[in-house]
Design a binder for these strands. Sequence first.
RNA 1: GCCGAUGUAGCUCAGUGGUAGAGCAGCUGAUUCGUAAUCAGCAGGUCAGGGGUUCAAGUCCCCUCAUCGGCUCCA
Length: 634
Amino acid sequence: MINVVLKDGAMRQVPANSTGYELAELISRRLAKEAVATRINGELMDLRTILKDGDAVELVTASDPEALEVLRHSAAHLMAHAVVRLFPGTRLGIGPSIKDGFYYDFAVAEPFKPEDLPRIEEEMKRLAGEKIPLHRHEISREESLAFFASKGEDFKVELIRDLPPDETITYYDQGEFLDLCAGPHLLETGQIKVFKLLSIAGAYWRGDEKRPMLQRIYGTAFFKQSDLDAHLHRIEEAKKRDHRKLGRELDLFSMQDEAPGFPFYHPKGMILRNQLEEFWRKEHRKAGYQEIRTPIILNRVLWERSGHWDHYRENMYFTKIDELDYAVKPMNCPGSMLVYRNTMHSYKEFPLRYCELGLVHRHELSGALHGMARVRAFTQDDSHIFITPEQIEDEVGRVIALVDKFYKVFKMSYRVELSTRPEGAMGDIAVWNVAEEALENVLKHREIDYRLNPGDGAFYGPKIDFHIEDSIGRSWQCATIQLDFQMPEKFDLTYIGEDGQRHRPVVIHRVLYGAMERFIAMLIEHYAGAFPLWLAPVQAVILPITDRAREYGQELQAQLEEAGIRTELDTRNEKIGFKIREAQMQKIPYMLVIGDKEVEQGLVAVRTREGGDQGTMDPKEFFARLKAQVENKE
RNA sequence: GCCGAUGUAGCUCAGUGGUAGAGCAGCUGAUUCGUAAUCAGCAGGUCAGGGGUUCAAGUCCCCUCAUCGGCUCCA
């Protein structure tokens, strides 16, 4: 007999060589049925793993979030098993469990067709019905290489080669299907009951466009049918929030075949954008920024100097003026540098904060374009802050606080990443290390949770990125703070220090919204088109019930516009229910229904987007309420 | 850019080789109505663009363009 420690701290005696599953059986039949995996000394393992004396053992059941990962990982294997059966000669890539599901990458002679998915699902169901047990095996590096090489599984061979030398190599079998895998897995395929294959996509081997393209199948799996149904329902609901759909329905913007990736703002989209910009200007004045504007087209020589010519050329657009080469700016920084260099500067001016709503153009891959979220022309709410090296931490901290202030106004949550030196970066590695350390320090001192994103920095410096998720969980970089020692060097920027000598400033590049276009996309999805009053393109609509209320409606509209409320008057010859329905679908915050009673009494019947009929109110009182709400950005 | 899918009226979609359709939106008229769709009529199309096969192409083939999903989650 051996002793193991359970989750609640209790000691439990079990026969030697017991597995987690056997332990579960000892505790209760129900637990044995519900157990998915064991956590042994903190590590997630198979239920078949043999327990050792003194192990801390926790039985992981379906209610544990990690259980889903195990299930989905096993579901990926089940899918691969089915694919290999249906499409002999298929070679395997990788098949992990991911957020909301799983995928598996396959090298196949012919790409999968949508009709293949139901066939594969059928085969998976058949294999699940066979309740095939999964077994883990350890294998030596040589054996595993020889084995997978003999089967022509060159992707697996590459994976094994890349494993650290001391790594234990394991594979799993389920019937005739073998796969290199670290596990853990379920006991047998019959435990995979609720799953669905969702989509097919091409995916480069290891995400590298120079490597072969594999065929990826995405799917998802759950323990309960109701969970899968809920998940599919959520996906449907999320599609309704898609900014591309709402942008059209609410008439905010459009994309045209004549200008792929270059958005067209419609009047209502423009109101939204102008509100964001107005708020931005006000906050920037308060925070000590000075607004500038620099040209969109600048001479090639400038871009050679800034390093963009060498590091960013593929993403730039070019033109000729009087036989000279010019480039359309992909970034605002060089322009800002020229403004700085135009006059002498003293340390007393620092931090010197220029800000600019700068329209930039970047050639993005055609396949990467995505509504307003990834476009080829966008306005960055940019800023270039000139500081002394000593001011770095303090000023980066101020910018982080400003980012947070902005995102709180919209009640948007974000994830922070620290992106470090990319390949082919400009400048000295030692300088990079200093810059990366400085950013890391700020994050640590402010106790901000962040994820490291190695190699994803700008070519001139490391950055702190703020990511926002869209309606279907895709993550988009919005705000970013970048530290730059390179541009000041390239542009020979100086300031006069306390000692009367010339010194080199440090530059912080930063955006808060990121790009107006992308931020608007995120806002639309965040609010599902139902903007708070201060942003709503139409804030109130007056709905006369009959023509008799028309004149009163016009008076009201004049008064509302006078009070600064964006108002429409719907005088169409339609029934009130119809007008309300349309206003509701346009997600207009306030509807003012006026009929004979209101005209007579000089009142308005207020209906809100969220709360329905609110009863009648004095117009003055209503105006005050709206003004207060706009003021508070509620 | 690459892999796959899609492209028919402003929008959502039907139309599997034989005379281009529906609903909504639009326009016109009637209706003057109390909190999410009043009724009737009219108009609306180079079936993304180009080329080909065929007696005949929205439909089959090829090219181009655009859009959508994916190409980050490491056995």
